[in-house]
Lab assay of single mutants.
Amino acid sequence: ALNRGDKVRIKRTESYWYGDVGTVASVEKSGILYPVIVRFDRVNYNGFSGSASGVNTNNFAENELELVQAAA
């Protein structure tokens, strides 16, 4: 299972961040479909780089994520 702070690569092909590595911000335990919230260094097309207006978190299912580096 994934944990907060883990570095993960995104495998959801239609995602803006496909192939990117993000950090797990939190994992919901309530049984929702996309329980893993991942935070990225770059914002998506809703904002400009360096601006706070873009979105830099997204929810994924565990099977859409590949663990790159476990949290220390």
Results as ranks from 00 to 15, higher is better:
residue 4 R to L: 13
residue 42 R to W: 06
residue 60 F to R: 01
residue 2 L to W: 06
residue 13 T to G: 05
residue 56 N to L: 06
residue 61 A to Q: 07
residue 4 R to M: 10
residue 43 V to R: 04
residue 23 T to M: 07
residue 4 R to S: 09
residue 35 P to I: 13
residue 40 F to H: 00
residue 18 Y to R: 01
residue 63 N to Q: 09
residue 46 N to I: 07
residue 45 Y to L: 15
residue 29 K to H: 13
residue 69 Q to V: 09
residue 70 A to C: 09
residue 14 E to Q: 09
residue 33 L to P: 13
residue 33 L to K: 10
residue 71 A to F: 11
residue 16 Y to I: 05
residue 20 D to Q: 08
residue 20 D to G: 03
residue 51 S to T: 11
residue 56 N to I: 07
residue 1 A to E: 11
residue 49 S to L: 13
residue 57 T to A: 09
residue 11 K to R: 10
residue 43 V to D: 09
residue 54 G to F: 07
residue 13 T to R: 12
residue 35 P to F: 14
residue 70 A to W: 07
residue 57 T to K: 07
residue 16 Y to G: 03
residue 50 G to L: 06
residue 39 R to I: 14
residue 34 Y to E: 05
residue 46 N to V: 06
residue 62 E to P: 10
residue 47 G to D: 15
residue 66 E to M: 05
residue 61 A to S: 10
residue 58 N to C: 15
residue 69 Q to W: 12
residue 10 I to E: 02
residue 22 G to N: 01
residue 57 T to I: 12
residue 72 A to C: 13
residue 56 N to E: 07
residue 61 A to N: 12
residue 11 K to H: 10
residue 39 R to N: 07
residue 42 R to Q: 06
residue 31 G to C: 13
residue 16 Y to W: 10
residue 26 S to C: 13
residue 67 L to E: 02
residue 44 N to W: 15
residue 61 A to Y: 11
residue 51 S to Y: 10
residue 61 A to W: 05
residue 39 R to T: 12
residue 41 D to L: 06
residue 32 I to Y: 09
residue 23 T to I: 12
residue 28 E to D: 14
residue 10 I to F: 02
residue 33 L to I: 08
residue 69 Q to A: 11
residue 26 S to Q: 10
residue 66 E to N: 03
residue 38 V to P: 00
residue 66 E to V: 06
residue 5 G to F: 04
residue 2 L to K: 01
residue 8 V to K: 02
residue 58 N to L: 07
residue 27 V to M: 06
residue 11 K to A: 06
residue 49 S to Y: 11
residue 20 D to A: 06
residue 18 Y to D: 02
residue 66 E to Q: 07
residue 67 L to Q: 02
residue 49 S to V: 09
residue 10 I to R: 02
residue 16 Y to F: 14
residue 20 D to W: 07
residue 17 W to N: 01
residue 60 F to E: 01
residue 68 V to L: 07
residue 46 N to P: 12
residue 1 A to T: 14
residue 51 S to L: 11
residue 15 S to Q: 00
residue 4 R to I: 14
residue 2 L to Y: 13
residue 48 F to S: 14
residue 43 V to F: 15
residue 42 R to S: 07
residue 47 G to N: 14
residue 65 L to G: 00
residue 16 Y to A: 06
residue 23 T to N: 02
residue 34 Y to C: 08
residue 19 G to L: 12
residue 40 F to G: 00
residue 59 N to G: 13
residue 58 N to A: 15
residue 67 L to S: 02
residue 15 S to P: 00
residue 7 K to C: 12
residue 5 G to D: 02
residue 3 N to C: 14
residue 24 V to D: 00
residue 43 V to P: 15
residue 22 G to W: 05
residue 19 G to Y: 03
residue 45 Y to G: 14
residue 19 G to F: 08
residue 71 A to E: 11
residue 36 V to K: 00
residue 28 E to I: 11
residue 6 D to E: 01
residue 17 W to G: 00
residue 46 N to K: 05
residue 31 G to M: 10
residue 42 R to H: 09
residue 59 N to V: 06
residue 2 L to E: 04
residue 57 T to S: 08
residue 52 A to Y: 10
residue 60 F to W: 02
residue 72 A to T: 14
residue 5 G to Q: 02
residue 61 A to I: 04
residue 68 V to Y: 04
residue 50 G to P: 10
residue 58 N to Y: 11
residue 45 Y to R: 10
residue 7 K to D: 02
residue 34 Y to A: 06
residue 1 A to C: 14
residue 25 A to K: 08
residue 14 E to F: 05
residue 11 K to G: 04
residue 66 E to K: 03
residue 14 E to Y: 08
residue 21 V to L: 06
residue 68 V to T: 04
residue 21 V to E: 04
residue 24 V to C: 03
residue 13 T to Q: 14
residue 6 D to H: 02
residue 11 K to P: 01
residue 17 W to I: 01
residue 68 V to C: 05
residue 1 A to V: 13
residue 55 V to P: 05
residue 10 I to P: 03
residue 49 S to P: 15
residue 7 K to R: 11
residue 51 S to M: 11
residue 33 L to W: 04
residue 54 G to M: 06
residue 50 G to W: 07
residue 65 L to C: 04
residue 69 Q to R: 09
residue 8 V to I: 01
residue 62 E to F: 15
residue 60 F to Y: 07
residue 62 E to N: 04
residue 26 S to H: 15
residue 57 T to G: 05
residue 12 R to V: 08
residue 63 N to G: 09
residue 30 S to T: 13
residue 35 P to R: 07
residue 10 I to C: 13
residue 10 I to V: 14
residue 53 S to E: 14
residue 15 S to L: 08
residue 17 W to A: 01
residue 31 G to K: 08
residue 59 N to A: 14
residue 32 I to N: 14
residue 52 A to P: 11
residue 50 G to H: 06
residue 34 Y to Q: 07
residue 27 V to P: 00
residue 6 D to N: 02
residue 17 W to D: 15
residue 28 E to A: 11
residue 46 N to Q: 12
residue 33 L to H: 09
residue 57 T to Y: 12
residue 53 S to L: 13
residue 54 G to P: 09
residue 52 A to K: 08
residue 66 E to G: 02
residue 7 K to Q: 09
residue 64 E to H: 02
residue 12 R to I: 04
residue 65 L to N: 04
residue 17 W to C: 03
residue 35 P to A: 08
residue 36 V to T: 00
residue 1 A to K: 13
residue 68 V to I: 11
residue 31 G to I: 08
residue 14 E to W: 08
residue 16 Y to D: 03
residue 51 S to D: 13
residue 62 E to I: 13
residue 23 T to K: 04
residue 42 R to V: 06
residue 3 N to A: 12
residue 47 G to T: 08
residue 43 V to C: 15
residue 27 V to N: 03
residue 39 R to S: 09
residue 12 R to H: 05
residue 24 V to F: 03
residue 47 G to H: 10
residue 27 V to W: 03
residue 54 G to H: 08
residue 13 T to E: 13
residue 72 A to Y: 11
residue 39 R to M: 14
residue 14 E to L: 07
residue 64 E to F: 03
residue 2 L to C: 08
residue 35 P to M: 15
residue 30 S to A: 11
residue 53 S to V: 13
residue 62 E to R: 14
residue 10 I to T: 05
residue 8 V to F: 03
residue 58 N to G: 15
residue 37 I to C: 14
residue 43 V to G: 06
residue 17 W to E: 00
residue 7 K to A: 05
residue 17 W to Y: 05
residue 37 I to R: 11
residue 14 E to H: 09
residue 6 D to S: 03
residue 34 Y to H: 13
residue 42 R to G: 06
residue 36 V to R: 00
residue 12 R to N: 13
residue 66 E to F: 04
residue 68 V to P: 01
residue 51 S to H: 09
residue 68 V to N: 01
residue 4 R to Q: 12
residue 29 K to E: 12
residue 40 F to W: 01
residue 5 G to C: 09
residue 64 E to P: 00
residue 19 G to H: 04
residue 37 I to N: 08
residue 69 Q to D: 08
residue 69 Q to E: 14
residue 12 R to D: 06
residue 30 S to E: 13
residue 2 L to M: 05
residue 16 Y to M: 04
